[in-house]
Design a protein around this nucleic acid. Structure first.
Length: 276
DNA sequence: GCACTGTCCTGTTTGC
DNA sequence: TGCAAACAGGACAGTG
């Protein structure tokens, strides 16, 4: 599932292909994935506009258009946004929206499980996307400090795993990178957020920044669905410590990686390195 | 305000 | 072998 490193990788891989291109046509194959405005108005807002920039906010990818509208994608679980050059075939059987560009290429949004969402928003409408408007500081940003993390977690009775997945607390984290960060910090996922010591908060802050930086450097994590803007796979799955490794030996101590559920989410951890 | 649960959705895996 | 159930999880609505 695409998290912040995957969306950033997609942004970087798409930008050289589509910046400056005009949207010549839009084909909507599954209208219910367009959340705002209605599909007809959605198409009207983006048609014949130039793509002037690409931005990322948390897990949202924003294509800035020449009319001050942002074409916004959230890929959720299985969404993919792939650039297909003129004349080339695209492989997906689950295409949902196809954007035709003025050089004959196309931008194909495909999504097996159809959780992904699309928006075409004017700048003064962005507040309508609550998840984006209320997003907390992103890892690697100036606002994401150990002091911020300590203040946000203080007094919280929710599990630290659930706390880190809450986009209003830390923007851009998902299940893979939360499990990895908790392992690196030596913090058990079931710990209550408000119970972490200053030292643990410090370690967790460093670990979150590290896993996100490493994920970006590796071009993201591909388990099954994730592809970058060119259709390529990431390589961070080869460098994971716990996610997807349940039943295997911990790379640090040899104890078998355990799997449990926290807040309804599959959660992997090392019972020796991450004491409750 | 906070914490937790159910829902959406479909391909794959697991169990009988 | 074939079928049914369980599982995967990001975001949000609903509940207590």
């Amino acid at each position: 599932m695409p998290e912040m490193p995957e969306i950033e990788t997609i942004r970087r891989s798409l930008e050289p292909h589509i910046r400056g291109r005009k949207i010549e046509n839009v084909e909507v194959l599954l209208a219910r994935q367009i959340k705002w405005p209605e599909p007809e108005a959605f198409v009207a807002r983006i048609l014949q506009e130039d793509i002037v920039g690409l931005e990322r906010i948390g897990k949202y990818l924003l294509l800035q258009l020449s009319n001050q509208v942002s074409l916004i994608f959230h890929l959720r679980m299985t969404g993919q946004l792939v650039y297909v050059a003129a004349g080339a075939a695209d492989a997906s059987h689950h295409n949902r929206v196809i954007i035709y560009l003025d050089d004959g290429a196309r931008l194909v949004f495909s999504d097996t499980r159809t959780f992904g969402t699309l928006y075409a928003m004017h700048q003064d409408e962005l507040w309508r996307i609550r998840g984006m408007a209320e997003m907390g500081p992103e890892p690697l940003s100036e606002k994401f400090t150990a002091e911020y993390l300590a203040a946000a977690a203080a007094g919280r009775k929710t599990r630290i795993k659930s706390f880190l997945l809450d986009q209003s607390k830390v923007g851009g984290l998902g299940n893979i990178y939360v499990d990895e960060a908790l392992f690196l910090a030596g913090v058990h996922p079931m710990r209550l957020a408000g119970s972490l010591t200053g030292d643990e908060i410090q370690r967790l802050h460093e670990a979150v920044n590290r896993v996100i930086a490493d994920g970006i450097a590796d071009g993201g994590t591909t388990f099954r669905d994730y592809r970058d803007g060119n259709g390529g796979k990431g390589s961070h799955q080869d460098n994971l410590f716990v996610y997807g490794r349940d039943g295997e030996a911990c790379k640090r101590c040899g104890t078998l990686i355990a799997k449990t559920k926290v807040g309804g989410r599959g959660t992997r951890f090392c019972p020796s390195c991450q004491k409750i």
